[in-house]
């Protein structure tokens, strides 16, 4: 039988109200408060209830999450429910924080419910399934029912439908989908075009997401003392591609020693080439410095404009590479660069 664990705050865990919002996390080998309702509706059994005060979670999130993950380490469970949190902001954020951590640590589905006004929705809808819920506990039964029905579907292995049909908040996870009515793209396009011409409402199949921003790094004060590294997504690698970096949809990166060279030698000289499949390789194969400008950096090093060029350059392939993979590789490379006291990077892209 499937096993579930439920997360509740101090109030729904029947500890008390605001006065005990500092309640430290605990796990009970029983169904407490709302956990009973989950147990009734679930095609399975709620084995444990976790209770944590909203303020405790709010002011000691890291500690609270660690302790709860510790509780769960030796438990077997197939699904995790948190909330419903209604319009309670601290509770919603707590459900999101613990839900995200549980999903990442144990790779089980996590389901929550919050009112659309709850700040937890915006913060965590990408990380866990959050269903739109009522404003207050008057909607407890409705909200839990929605969550558990979806949970039962996941547990049964049934194919999940798009977010708009299942009802949870969109998570920014897009997959291709064969339309039941088989409306071809040409019909959809003409329909959208005529609606746009006539000023009628239409729904884009690819809503433009918000653009990510990145914190701006402080400028380098003294370049002549800085060690600078070259990083590329242009797929320049030694001729035998020792790290087997993929030509498209890369998940691997490599670092290549260049301390002993004034410029990168080319494919004909059996030195460096590109394995990037997304662009014409001829120019990069003939002179890899066009993509990774080792020669120009060396010149600036000799002239004293920069302290030194780092002894390795880093490379991967940026075609069809997913953002998550790219971000992971970027973090891994950054980690190395920081450990080696590199102050700046010039990143070349193709």
């Amino acid at each position: 039988m499937a096993k579930a664990i439920v997360y509740l705050n101090q109030f729904f865990g029947q500890i008390g109200g605001e006065e005990v919002a500092d309640h430290e996390p605990e796990i009970r080998n029983e169904k407490v408060g709302a956990a009973m309702l989950y147990d009734q509706l679930l095609d399975g059994e709620v084995t444990h209830t976790i209770i944590c005060g909203d303020n405790f979670m709010g002011s000691n999130e890291e500690q609270a999450v660690d302790r709860i993950l510790g509780f769960l380490k030796d438990k077997e469970f197939d699904i995790f429910f948190a909330g419903p949190a209604f319009q309670a902001g601290r509770y919603g954020i707590a459900c999101g924080a613990i839900g995200k951590a549980v999903k990442e640590e144990f790779d089980v589905s996590v389901i929550s419910s919050m009112n659309e006004e709850n700040p937890g929705v915006k913060m965590y809808k990408k990380d866990i399934y959050i269903f739109p819920g009522g404003k207050s506990a008057a909607k407890m039964r409705d909200d839990v029912t929605k969550m558990v029905e979806f949970g039962n579907k996941i547990l049964s292995g049934e194919k999940l439908l798009p977010a708009e049909q299942e009802g949870f908040f969109k998570r920014g996870i897009r997959h291709q989908y064969f339309l039941e009515d088989e409306t071809p793209a040409y019909e959809r396009a003409i329909d959208m075009l005529l609606k746009k011409i006539n000023g009628e409402d239409f729904v884009s199949e690819l809503p433009i997401p918000e653009i990510d921003t990145v914190e701006i790094a402080d400028p380098i004060k003294d370049l002549s003392k800085a060690t600078i590294a070259l990083v590329t997504s242009g797929g320049i690698v030694p001729i035998d591609n020792p790290d087997k970096i993929q030509s498209a949809s890369a998940t691997r990166w490599g670092k290549y020693y260049i301390a002993d060279v004034d410029k990168l030698k080319n494919r004909r000289e059996e030195s460096f080439k590109t394995i990037h499949a997304g662009y014409d390789p001829k120019a990069a194969d003939a002179d890899p410095n066009r993509v990774v400008p080792v020669d120009a950096m060396r010149k600036y090093e000799q002239e004293g404009k920069i302290g030194s060029l780092y002894e390795y350059f880093y490379s991967t392939v940026g075609t069809g590479t997913s953002q998550d993979e790219a971000a992971r590789m970027g973090k891994e490379i950054t980690q190395e660069l920081i450990e080696n006291n590199i102050q700046a990077v010039i990143e070349t892209s193709t």
């Binding site: 997959h175 339309l179 071809p184």
Partner: peptide
Amino acid sequence: QIAGWSTKTMKEF
């Protein structure tokens, strides 16, 4: 089938 035949679309899951 970008020429227009595609009965596939993209959905949020």
